[in-house]
C-alpha cells in the first residue's frame, strides 16, 4: 500500500487576491512504503508546498492527501497522530534548536508523543549513534557545537520520533563536501536500518543520484514525473530545459554515447562509471 497518496492535490496561495498563485496543480501521486525518493525541481516549482501537505501543515485548496491509507483533514483531531508518522526536517533545521542540552533537544519530539522515559532514553541514544554524535556530546549545549553537528542534532530530533516517513528539505545545503557526505551516508544508513520511507529534497543531482531509488520531478507547480532514478536522468534534455541538470558524470557518458561509443546502460554514479569503463576495457582485451 502507498504510504503517501495524493489525488488532484492543488494548493493556491493568496486565493481571492491579486497575488493568487497556484503552487501545486492537480498532483496525483503514490509513494510506496520503504522507498528512498529524491525530490527535484527549480526554485518555485512547488517542492516545499508539496511536502508541507504530507504532514498536514498545509490544507489542500482542492484534492486530497492520504497518509498510510488515512485521509488527512477529514477529522482534524486525527492530524496529530499523522504528524507523528511523517517527520519533516526544514531547511537550516539547526536554527530550530532551543533546549539546554543536546539530549533534551532530541527528547522534545518523543516526549510530545507521550513515550515513557526509558523508551525516550533508548531512542535518543540510538539516534545519536545513528547520526554520529558521541555520547559525551549529549550533555553539551547544542549551541556549542559546529554547524554540521548542530544540523545532525536537529535531524536526530525528528528521527527519534521514528516516523514512517522522513522528509528532509535540502539537509546538506551550506555544508562542505565532507559534511554533505556525512549527512547523506547517515540518511542512507537510517533508511537501510529502519526501512522507513525517506524523501530528500535537493538541488544537487549528484547527491540525489548517489542515494535515491526513485526521483520525483516538480516543474511549474506540476508533477513532471515520478520514476526510477536511471529513467529520470535518462531525460537529461527535458531536465535541462526546466532549469535542472543531470550529474556531471551522466553528461560525460551521454556525450560519449552521442560520439558513437556503444554503452549498454545509462550512467549516473562515478562508481558505476568506473565499473563500466573497466569492463569495456577488459572485454576488448579478452
Amino acid at each position: 500500500m502507498a504510504v503517501i497518496k495524493t489525488e488532484g492535490l492543488t494548493y493556491v496561495y493568496g486565493e481571492g487576491t491579486p497575488f493568487r498563485k497556484v503552487a501545486v496543480d492537480h498532483i496525483d501521486l503514490e509513494i510506496e512504503e520503504g522507498e528512498f525518493v529524491g525530490i527535484i525541481g527549480h526554485t518555485g516549482s512547488g517542492k516545499s508546498t508539496l511536502i508541507q501537505h504530507f504532514n498536514g501543515l498545509l490544507k489542500p485548496t482542492e484534492g486530497s492527501v492520504y497518509i498510510d491509507g488515512e485521509k488527512l483533514w477529514d477529522d482534524k483531531a486525527k492530524l496529530r497522530p499523522i504528524r507523528f508518522k511523517v517527520g519533516l526536517v526544514f531547511q537550516y533545521p539547526e536554527y530550530q534548536l532551543f533546549e539546554e542540552t543536546v539530549y533534551k533537544d532530541i527528547a522534545f519530539g518523543p516526549k510530545n508523543m507521550g513515550l515513557d522515559d526509558d523508551e525516550i532514553d533508548r531512542r535518543i541514544k540510538e539516534t545519536a549513534r545513528m547520526v554520529g554524535l558521541k555520547p559525551e556530546m549529549l550533555e553539551k549545549s547544542p549551541f556549542d557545537l559546529s554547524g554540521g553537528q548542530k544540523r545532525r542534532v536537529a535531524i536526530a530530533g525528528v528521527m527519534a520520533m521514528n516516523p514512517k516517513v522522513l522528509i528532509l528539505d535540502e539537509p546538506a545545503s551550506g555544508l562542505d563536501p565532507k559534511g554533505r557526505e556525512r549527512i547523506l551516508s547517515m540518511l542512507k544508513d537510517y533508511h537501510k536500518q529502519t526501512g522507513n520511507t525517506v524523501l530528500l529534497v535537493s538541488h544537487s543531482m549528484e547527491d540525489i543520484a548517489k542515494n535515491a531509488q526513485k526521483i520525483l520531478v516538480m516543474n511549474k507547480a506540476k508533477l513532471f514525473c515520478y520514476d526510477e532514478t536511471v529513467k529520470v536522468f535518462h531525460r537529461s534534455e527535458e531536465l535541462r530545459q526546466m532549469g535542472l541538470s543531470v550529474p556531471q558524470i551522466t553528461r560525460v557518458f551521454d556525450r560519449l554515447k552521442a560520439m558513437g561509443i556503444g554503452l549498454d546502460d545509462d550512467v549516473y554514479t562515478v562508481k558505476y562509471a568506473a565499473e563500466l569503463v573497466l569492463s569495456m576495457l577488459k572485454r576488448r582485451e579478452g
Binding site: 527549480h42 526554485t43 545545503s173 543531482m205 532549469g243 535542472l244 541538470s245
Partner: peptide, 8 residues
C-alpha cells in the same frame, strides 16, 4: 549555495 542548478 542556495540556488538551483540553473541559478548556479
Amino acid at each position: 549555495a542556495m540556488l538551483d542548478p540553473k541559478g548556479r
